[in-house]
Simulated scan of single mutants.
Amino acid sequence: MLRLVYLVIRFLFEIPFLIFQIKRYKKHPERYSLEERINWTRKLLRKATRRARVKLDISGTEYLPKEGGFLVTPNHQGLFDILALFDALDQPFKIVYKEELRKISLAADVLDNMEYHAISRKNLRQSMKVIRSTTKELKDGLPAVIFPEGTRSREGNHLLEFKGGSFKAAIDAKAPIVPCAMINCFKVLDYNSLKKVNCAIHFFEPVTYDDYKDLTSTEIAEMVQERIQSYINEHD
């Protein structure tokens, strides 16, 4: 919480313009391409990471496919995970996020501007609609991010169970799956301190459709979870 307050203070004089820009994107989305809107958010969040006294080590970007859609599946440690992803990924991408984030009106505006998908864990029909939309985007060549745990782990670098349904969009699109490890990202906002934080994000070599086509979604989830947890255990 202390670091979040510190960030607000660092952005204090820029906040009116930022709000104006967010509202302008929302009111006139036809004037700006999706790529422009996502890139604007990336620039803002990268600035926030620099100002938050965070040293983010990024590795494995050489494994990211240069063309076509792919699904990034990180473990989930907290809100800073989103900033880490925007710091590490240079191309436009979509994120499937939990519906509860829409309770923060300004956050909802930013997410809507990027046409990100909110998923309701209590509404199966709505969830399937989101998966179908993500599948289409993957087929159209747009990368996507889904957190297979479904919610943030509150156990530090220990992962919660990965859910097989999180991989359905990739399976249906026959798209590569890129496991992604978040390490110590929870410390950025969970610790009530302004001390410099060292954390990391690592992308793994893609799991191609040929690699996983004979596996069930549960088996895929278990395989990806094991790879990420093993990497975290080695590098924590």
Rank of each mutant, 00 (worst) to 15 (best):
V5Q: 07
L12P: 06
I15T: 10
L18R: 00
L18Y: 01
Q21I: 08
I22V: 12
K23E: 14
R24Y: 01
R24E: 13
P29N: 01
P29M: 05
Y32M: 13
E35T: 15
R37A: 06
K43R: 13
L45K: 00
L45Q: 06
A48P: 11
T49V: 15
T49Y: 01
R50Y: 01
V54Y: 02
I58F: 06
I58C: 12
I58L: 09
F70R: 07
P74M: 01
N75Y: 03
N75A: 05
N75W: 00
H76N: 04
Q77K: 06
L79M: 09
I82D: 08
L83R: 00
D87P: 08
D90G: 15
D90C: 11
I95S: 08
Y97E: 14
K98L: 14
L101I: 13
S105Y: 03
D109M: 15
H117N: 10
A118S: 15
S120L: 03
L124A: 13
T134K: 06
T135F: 08
T135P: 10
T135W: 09
D140S: 09
L142C: 09
P143G: 02
P148E: 05
P148N: 06
G150K: 04
R152N: 00
N157R: 01
F162P: 11
G164R: 03
G165Y: 02
G165S: 05
A170N: 03
D172H: 04
A175S: 15
P176D: 04
P179I: 11
A181L: 15
I183Q: 07
C185V: 10
F186A: 12
F186V: 12
F186D: 14
L189I: 09
L189F: 14
D190Y: 07
Y191M: 15
L194N: 13
L194C: 13
K195N: 13
V197L: 14
H202P: 11
F203G: 07
Y209M: 14
Y209N: 13
Y212N: 10
L215N: 09
T216P: 07
T216F: 05
T216A: 01
M223W: 04
V224T: 01
I232A: 11
